[in-house]
């Protein structure tokens, strides 16, 4: 008798909760986002695709993808190491280390750009040296990579730490007593445990790298066809009274940044199959 009333109540609660969540998302997220899509397709599909064949757009898209391809793997390696260090060890200064790791969140992206200029700019710490050896960092790809890496540094660690802590060490220790190597433990015990955290971390990192504007704009120089990323292209098109090109590029950017979601989907399917087995 009791389970029945519980499930009945559950349906009612479920509907209210879903309704509430969707209403909130609609107000905050969907309507503003819908507006972007409407603006992009205001003059039809033809106009939309026309904007996407401009050389300036293509080179901006290429640059954005290049930066993501460099930054995401580097920050994944770092993020996993940092998460392991923090979640699996107790040591004095642990909370401090977590807070240091959070610095990129606390720093305004604009200030991030400023920091990199202060380091590598013509009048920065390494400016003279870099000029002497003729290496360009600021207003070229390296500084844009540094800025993007800085901003997205904590995401993966931050997502993985709670999962690692929640999961505990029993399984890993069991594997170790069975003689598994570190790599084996990592691949077959730790990684499956943290896969959701890691994936969400990847999604966030990738999306943030691709969408970053403030920090990159300070260090890029915004040279069309050379150091212009997609967000900068969007801003530039908008400033040149080409709002439709701007919104079209935003739609593409949103699509690119969500590539990781496809990855998530694939992993979800695969693990489901595994679970069934």
């Amino acid at each position: 008798m009791k389970p029945k009333t519980a499930t009945e109540e559950k349906v009612w609660v479920k509907l209210v909760l879903i309704g509430g969540a969707i209403a909130y998302l609609a107000l905050v997220l969907f309507l503003p986002a819908l507006n972007v899509f409407l603006q992009a397709f205001k003059f039809g599909l033809g106009a939309f695709f026309h904007h996407l064949t401009e050389p300036a757009f293509l080179s901006a898209a290429r640059l954005t993808v290049i930066i993501a391809l460099i930054v995401v793997p580097i920050n994944t390696v770092f993020g996993l190491c940092a998460a392991w260090v923090i979640a699996r060890n107790q040591f004095p200064g642990r909370t401090l280390l977590i807070s240091i790791l959070d610095i990129p969140f606390a720093v305004s992206p604009v200030v991030t750009g400023l920091m990199i200029v202060l380091l590598y700019g013509l009048n920065g710490w390494f400016g003279r040296f870099l000029e002497a050896v003729n290496i360009k960092i600021v207003f070229a790809l390296p500084a844009m990579i540094f800025a993007s890496a800085f901003i997205t540094m904590p995401f993966i660690a931050r997502e993985v730490i709670p999962v690692l802590e929640e999961a505990g060490t029993d399984q890993e220790e069991a594997a170790k007593t069975l003689g598994a190597t570190d790599w084996q433990i990592f691949w077959s015990v730790t990684l499956p445990t943290i896969r959701w955290g890691l994936l969400y971390g990847l999604i966030l990192t990738n999306a943030r790298v691709m969408g970053e504007f403030g920090a990159v704009s300070v260090v890029s120089g915004n040279i069309i066809g050379k150091t212009q990323t997609l967000p900068l292209f969007v801003e530039d098109a908008y400033k040149a009274y080409e709002s439709q090109a701007a919104f079209s590029a935003s739609v593409v950017l949103a699509g690119l940044a969500l590539v990781t979601l496809v990855l998530k989907e694939i992993v979800e399917r695969k693990t489901q199959i595994k679970d069934v087995e």
């Binding site: 200029v117 700019g121 013509l122 009048n123 920065g124 400016g127 000029e131 360009k136 600021v138 207003f139 704009s217 120089g221 915004n222 040279i223 069309i224 066809g225 050379k226 530039d236 400033k239 040149a240």
Partner: peptide, 20 residues
């Protein structure tokens, strides 16, 4: 001719800091 367009103040800062 490579081109960069942005606010005047931002461009000034960039050139001083090493934009070519």
């Amino acid at each position: 001719i490579a081109q960069s367009y942005s606010g005047s103040g931002a461009q000034t800062r960039a050139v001083i800091d090493g934009l070519d």
